[in-house]
Structures are given as C-alpha cells and as structure tokens.
Design a protein around this nucleic acid. Sequence first.
DNA 1: TCAATATACTGAAACGTTACAGATTGCCAT
DNA 2: ATGGCAATCTGTAACGTTTCAGTATATTGA
Lengths: 351, 351
Amino acid sequence: MDRQRTDKNGETSAQGRPTLKTLAFMTGLGVTTVSRALKDAPEIGAETRRRVQLVAKQIGYRPNRAGVRLRTGRTNVISLVLNTDREIMSFVSDIIYGVSEVLAETPYHLIVTPYSRSQDPMEPIRYLVETGSADGVIISRTQPNDPRARYMLEHGMPFATHGRTDMGLVHPYHDFDNHVFAMEAVRRLASMGRHKLALLSPPPGLTYYGHTLNGFADALSEVGASEIPFNTVSIDHTIEQIRTRTAQVMRRENRPDGFVSSAAAATLAIVAGIEDAGLKLGRDVDVVSKQSSDLLHLFRPELLVVNENFRLAGSDLARSVLGWIGGAAPGSLQRLVATSEVRAFSPPVSV
Amino acid sequence: MDRQRTDKNGETSAQGRPTLKTLAFMTGLGVTTVSRALKDAPEIGAETRRRVQLVAKQIGYRPNRAGVRLRTGRTNVISLVLNTDREIMSFVSDIIYGVSEVLAETPYHLIVTPYSRSQDPMEPIRYLVETGSADGVIISRTQPNDPRARYMLEHGMPFATHGRTDMGLVHPYHDFDNHVFAMEAVRRLASMGRHKLALLSPPPGLTYYGHTLNGFADALSEVGASEIPFNTVSIDHTIEQIRTRTAQVMRRENRPDGFVSSAAAATLAIVAGIEDAGLKLGRDVDVVSKQSSDLLHLFRPELLVVNENFRLAGSDLARSVLGWIGGAAPGSLQRLVATSEVRAFSPPVSV
DNA sequence: TCAATATACTGAAACGTTACAGATTGCCAT
DNA sequence: ATGGCAATCTGTAACGTTTCAGTATATTGA
C-alpha cells in the first residue's frame, strides 16, 4: 500500500537529509566522485568539482558525522575536561566561551566531560582515549607532574593544558605568568610601604602554586619585605574558611599589612575577614588580587587588581589543540601570557 | 612482510578496542546474538546472556558510538544551547555542572552549542534539528512566544526550557518563581518602611521579565507602595550603565528608597551607584537581590538576598529532557521552584 | 599504428551497529 | 512417524562515509 521511497535514497527519498547518494543521483555521478569532488581532490575535473559543490550548497548537504566518524575514526569533537565541584565559577564559563568562539568556525563540537571530587582525575581521560570519543582534549588544574598529560602523550591524543607541566615533556599549553603576577603584586605593596605580606595561594599541587610562591618569595627578598605565613588556606577553600582564617591572622600582634590573593572570590573573603577584625582596607592593610572580570573595584575601590583573561585562555587552548591535530609541532603551541600591570581604582568619568 | 592481523578482527586484533565481532569470536556466538544478549533481549538464553555480559565486562567492551549512531540515528548527545556573550557568568557554569551531574550516570554526552549576539537564536536550533546532532536540547533565555520551542515541537526534537513559554504549547521546563520573588521582595521592603521602590528587571522579551514585573506590580498595590520608574536599564546592561543610571535616579528629588534587583552582578552596580550619589545602603535605601552564590553578603551585609539555585535548574532540565526522550509525557516534566525567603545577613558564628 | 601514460571517473569493501528474515534444534500433540 | 511450535541462535543488509583497486577514454611518444 505504502509506496514511499522507491529506490535506495537518491530519486524519491521524500524525507531525510541529503547524503552523498542523493548528490550522486542529482549530478549523475558516482558516490566516490562526489565525495572526492567535495574535498577538492586533484583527480576530479575542475568543472565537475564546481558542479558538485554548487549542488551540494544548493540542497544544503552536510556530511553525516556518524558516517565520517565510523569510517575515519575522526570524531570532530574536542573535549573540555572539568572538575565539577572545584572549578571556580566565572572561570569556567569564560573558558567555555573562548573555546566555543574558536570551534564555531570549524566542524568541531565541544563536549564537556566532567569529573567530581570523588573520582580519579585520570578516569575521564582514560575514557576519552580508550573510547576515542574526542580528537583533542583540554584540561585544567595542571600539575607539575601531571599523569593526564603523560598518559595522553603516550597514547597519541592531542591535548592542551591550562597551565604548564614540569616533566620535561613537550605539549601545548596556555598559562598566565603567575610568577610575574606575584612579583608585581609584592612590589606594588612594597611601594605603598607594606612590608609584612601574606599570600593566599592557589591550591598546592597545581603548577601555578609553585610559580606564585616563587614569584612572591623572589619579590619579597628583592624589596626586603617579610612574609606572614598564611598557608593553611588556599583559594580552593571555602569563603567561610578563608574569612575566619583571615580574621584570626589579622588579630595577631604580628599581622600582615598586605595581602596577595590569587582569586577574586577569595579576595571578598579576605576583605570580610579584615573587617571582621575591626581593621580597614587601605588604612591598615592593602590587598592585590587577580580577577577575571571587573567586579572587585565595585566591591571596594581600595583594592588593587590584576586581570586574567580566561576567555582568551579558552580560545588559545582551542586553537592549540586544533593546531596539534592539524599537524603543527606541539612545541610551537605554547603561550605564556604576560601579566598586565597592577591597577588601582580610577573613578568613573561622568559623576 | 607485515603479518599483523590475520582475520577481520576477533582472533588476532592485536590493537584496537573490542567490538561485537571480538565478543562474538570469544564466545563462539554470532554477532547478532551478542548484540541482543548485551541488551537483555528475551529471545536469548539466560545462560548465554550471562556469559556474554561477563566476557563483555571482562574485556571492557564499550559500544562504538559512531556505529550505534549511524545505524539507529540515536546520538546519545544532549545539547545545551548558550548565548556566548549575554549569559551571566556563574549562571552558566552552575547549569553546566547540574546537567553534567545527571548525564554522568547515563551514556549521554553534553555538547555546548554556542550562538553569539550577531546570530539568529534560531540558527543553532535549526542546525541541531537538521543535522540530528542531538537527541535532546536545553535552551535558556526563554521567551513567551519562543520560536525555538515551537520549531522543536514541530520537528519532534525533545527539549526543555529554562523558564516558561506562553504559547499554549506543552513542553518540559524548569523555572524559578519570579512572580513570588518580586512580591516577597516588595513586601520585605515595605515591612521596613520602604514605599518608593525601583525594579531592575530582567531583559524585556524574556518570559520572566513579565513574571517579575507582574509580581512587583501586584505587591506594590498590595502594600500600597509606589514605583519609581527604572526601566531604562535591565540586568543585561553593563555594570557601568546600571551604575550611572542608578546614580542619576538617586540624585533626583523623588528618589527610590528601595530596589529589587534580578541579578547579583547588577546589584553590585546598583550599590555602587547609590554610593556614587552620596547615599548609604541600609540608611537611605534598601536593596533586595537575587543571587546564585552566597557572595552578596560579603559585599554589603545590609543587602537582602534571595537565592536561586542554577545547579538544581541544570540537573532538573537534564532529567526532563532525558525523561521526554524516554517517552514520558512532556507535561509531566515541568517544574516551578518556590522562591526561598528573603534573607538578611546573619553574622558568622565564631568571631 | 601501437603501446604507454595521463585524466576522469567508478564499484566494492569496510568501519560497528541493529533489524529483518530466516535457520536449527528439541519437544509435543497427533 | 509427522507436522507444528516454541526456544535459540544466525547471516545479510543497511546506515553514510572514505579508500582501494580498478575501468574507460583521450593523449602522447615512437
């Protein structure tokens, strides 16, 4: 009764997307020829090529991803591997936006592969490599000796890291120069007469923890300032933990007169702790903080800030992975972004 | 010279993941039997079924996604469609985390499909539907008459919206009750003696703009307060725009003594504007704001807050889409979350 | 003129999966 | 014995793509 599609796609095929077979039928060519014509293969006549491409555009042909993937193993997917409970908020969306921005111009899709606190960070990586679910991977929370990077290198999976490793292995990365950040922060505080400084560091274990610590220490000795230990908390701790810890240290006799903070949210907690102790920002103590969006100056104009652009990081990481997939040398896809200068609040123009 | 793989997978297959063929060879069964055994088909003997599943687990068999997708059309992908330049930061990451949390327990992958200001919001939707790149879609920035929802409904693509529509069409959604939020906010301000209120609304066009406005208006008349127009800005405007606009209105003779703000970042700008005008929060004016993380009280303890849980929204939306894909009635997958009460700052326990 | 060669195209096979339409076996009722 | 039937299992084809190994046809060199 039902005489829908008489031949195997091509002629009638009332519904469904066009395939190579459809194009082959329409142009009167073979499927093989169409396939090659679409990718500008040299052994296809110039006119045929143009004709095929024209028809393809006309009817809106899009290669079937599953077909390509099954045949070639290429997935046209980049995976962003994220810790679902530790990553700081704005951080993540900015990176995603940056990555998306780059991938939008390509056939690549972005998949987000999460892992939670309870899991081994290696698990998602192993999954991606073993199942071949992505052509490239972006990871963050990079460690000096990062088993994920080593594993992917061993298994030939292109990737890029947010932050450097320190294993003598070469791979693409994007990193913010936290050494310089910490140095500039200390110098600035010193120039304001602050010489007893505390550092709210990144979580120990991550590569940029070391960079930050070293920069902090180097600048301390350079300007002749001293450190007030504040290493029982890091920016991975909760707002409450940082706040109470700050209040404690500010109530001590030998309290810091300056803070360097590696994250904006943590800075809110530091300031709250300072004020809990009855002290005043700008008078008793100054704070230099990194931030990823311009909100800290709204919070307290006395804060000193350094901006880190995560959206840039995202697009950079995406470009690096694509570059590696495309055959570029991984060593040529490394970027260390310079720290912008420490900024004080400048009041809005029209008041 | 090179005698790597003697037969077509199965026996030797030195490298590569196991496939159904591998399993078939190992168990001595046919590929078809193995396939059915793995999905608990009734026409497979109980013992065979157990045996196949055991071997599959042993060698870590994972179905090839491309194979399944090509054959069945099922992609095992959920797409989250995001505006890349308008969405507020923390918002997005929380939703992604919530979605991930749910999808992690399933074979589904999460792909992020971006669109930017310059593009038609319909474009990514059309792409997803036409190319069949996802089994389900999650959208935000929902409008009362939302062409995306209508289109997906027409084309049989399961989806869930963050926020409701108002077209008489039934589909899954997750929404925060912004009507109640606005009412409670106004009531709270009124109870503090604030009777000249301004509303920083969501962007006009989105459904919850209307909900918020109505709630605001309803409560105004209930408590006998009046509105100070503040509708030249919305939470989609920049921090600077909101700030200067707030400062302007606060300098007028008939200035508001209370604000209701639909977003935390915008609230920072409102407070800054208030202070630019030389006025003081808690004395001259009070502000009730929504927030998605507990940061506003650090900013100014005088602020009154209502929490909206975007992570919950994400997991709820994911569950809804999966439910629809799984055959549940879309009408049964709608959730309106109650507004939690307006909270004032309560100082930390140990000081 | 004939073979050699380049040019432009093509069919068949394969990637891994599932659906369809059998095939084989044993068992029971007749 | 024979047909019928349920219980298990199996081969083939197809999804859309690319690659391999060709096949025609025209062009060249001697």
